[in-house]
Write a protein that binds this DNA or RNA. Structure first.
Lengths: 336, 336
DNA sequence: TTGTACGCGTTATCAA
DNA sequence: TTGATAACGCGTACAA
């Protein structure tokens, strides 16, 4: 099990070449403590001469710090490949983490095996903190994080993890804006395709819908499904049409749901937006792929990533930051 | 700079609790060497009792191995966010690396600063090997890899790096297939929007185009641009129309170029595919976004990722693997 | 089958 | 301002 490359130079070698002690070299390297200009010059020459590069395993061992932060993406294949939000979050997190001289390490959870391996990676002390994207409540990775008290932050808001701060968006306010607009553009019978009412995001979107409609809210026009999926959109829209054939406005709880709804409407011979106005949520890849393109809520992905990174960094400094809720923008396209 | 958590248990603690020596615990942990069933049982109990978790910094230091492999993504924002190929490559690499009990660590290069930081990360011995996606020839990261002789593999084929094996596709054969089909479906005046002729991929695509046309090849109908970009597509298509107003088939060197070409054709009042058939290359996000959707060359992304991972793993075992060229599939959609 | 003792390459403490 | 020297936590010959 010999390593293939040549043996790397150590501080010891540098010290010998420079005619100083290891301690002096270390101080020069880290800019900490005193070191004379002359010694520094000799050390720098020696470093170049022997091709020294610091051994981080040794450094991490003694410093109990890795200068690395994990970015755990916990999505089914499809979403990871398609959802532009994930990429934006990643870039935002990376920017802040890099600025703080840490290294971002992206860990992909794509199977149960992956979850186990990533958990033990986090437990293994390879990173000083972690950003968790779209984790669920019962999540092996989150368990590990909580158990070892790894400084971490969620992007999104899984319930039942009060110990870990999160970066969320104001689902309720966004839903309110969307629904109000539907109403103000003349829609009289407005329904909602609600999803995941057992999660905060789902419940809050329904609450915002209700807020906007006030006394005109009609429980009969809310059709629920456990999932934020295309198929959920098809089936709930079909059911909504059955309950209220004269529906002319629909708030779908996500873009995928909206896409399914549009398909169901088309099958039923309705046109969008003429017969029925449809709005979605997330501004995911679905939004532009739909025909017509979806009016939807744009998530400030990069800013969410930046905020999550700051949450972790602050914990690294010993602080106990509060969770963050970010405002959203609604983008009006052609579907309503 | 005290760490926030409680002090973690060490092999020493486990040994004390189990009433054995540190050496025995270590052997039990790694399944190497002899250890009695009784001792093993006591050790396992002790591990659970004190909540031991191995310190990898120490382990890496002594073993000179990290069990981690880097995945360096070196793309401008846009591409990273949009190109589904990257995600596929990532998932493929992750699967193989995980199978080999290594951890994949994704490093995003999104700026010059990032390049410097990632380079020093690789130099720092945090990973045992690396997969480099779409690196360019003059690349700080590749320099680092070559210099420290880190076991690595490219996805794609940058020139001037003979020391590092790569996973590529047969650009020439794919271009030949595409062009032949254009010819066989009755196109008489077929042009090519060539890009990046200074790179192997660009040169090979042109060579395949020429192969397919044989004696009917007309240099006049090849318009070149340095970039694989949408704008390159617009300008080269415009120029091609100027040179040959009767052109009825176009091979664009990438999907982005094809998208630009379609736009230019539309501006010129030509319809696709009726007036002019257009084919692209890559099966990227552009392909489906185009109207009509593009006929193009599908890259076997996951398999490319798997192959690259294998290339690295083999080097870790001391072998010297050859570069790999993978076959591609052409997907026929509506643009030609 | 088990225990002892050394080495991995740094950083940090403290006396000089 | 510098140099010894002690950790850091683990794997592993080698001896028992």
């Amino acid at each position: 099990m010999t390593s293939p490359g040549r043996v790397r130079a150590t501080v010891h070698d540098v010290a010998a070449h420079a005619g100083v002690s290891r301690g002096t070299v270390s101080r020069a390297l880290n800019g900490t403590g005193y070191v004379s200009a002359e010694a520094r010059a000799r050390i720098e020459a020696a470093i170049a001469e022997v091709g020294y590069v610091r051994n981080n395993a040794a450094r991490n061992l003694v410093m109990r710090k890795t200068w690395a932060i994990g970015f755990v993406v916990h999505e089914p294949h499809q979403l990871f490949l398609e959802d532009p939000n994930i990429g934006g979050i990643l870039l935002g997190t990376n920017a802040v983490v890099a600025e703080a001289d840490h290294q971002l390490v992206v860990l992909v959870v794509d199977s149960d095996d992956d979850a186990a391996r990533v958990s033990s990676y986090l437990r293994g002390g390879f990173v000083d903190g972690a950003v968790l994207v779209s984790a669920r409540s019962h999540d092996q990775v989150a368990d590990a994080v909580e158990e070892i008290r790894l400084p971490a932050a969620f992007v999104g808001h899984p319930e039942g993890r009060p110990a870990i701060p999160y970066v969320g968006i104001d689902n309720r306010a966004a839903a309110r804006t969307l629904t109000t607009r539907l109403r103000d553009t003349g829609r009289r019978r407005i329904g909602m395709l609600a999803s995941a009412l057992d999660r905060d995001s789902g419940a809050d979107r329904l609450a915002g819908f209700r807020d906007a409609l006030g006394p005109r809210f009609d429980e009969h026009l809310v059709v629920a499904d456990p999932l934020y999926s295309y198929h959920a959109g098809v089936s709930t829209m079909t059911e909504l049409l059955r309950r209220a054939p004269d529906v002319d406005g629909v708030f779908a709880a996500s873009d995928a749901v909206a896409a399914g709804a549009i398909e169901a409407l088309r099958s039923a011979g309705r046109t969008v937006p003429d017969d029925v106005g449809v709005v979605g949520f997330d501004d995911s890849a679905w939004a532009l792929r739909c025909n017509p393109p979806l009016s939807t809520v744009h998530q400030p992905a990069a800013e969410m990533g930046r905020a999550a990174a700051r949450l972790v960094l602050e914990q690294l400094e010993g602080r106990t930051p509060e969770s963050v809720t970010l405002p959203t923008d609604v983008v009006w396209r052609d579907s309503a």
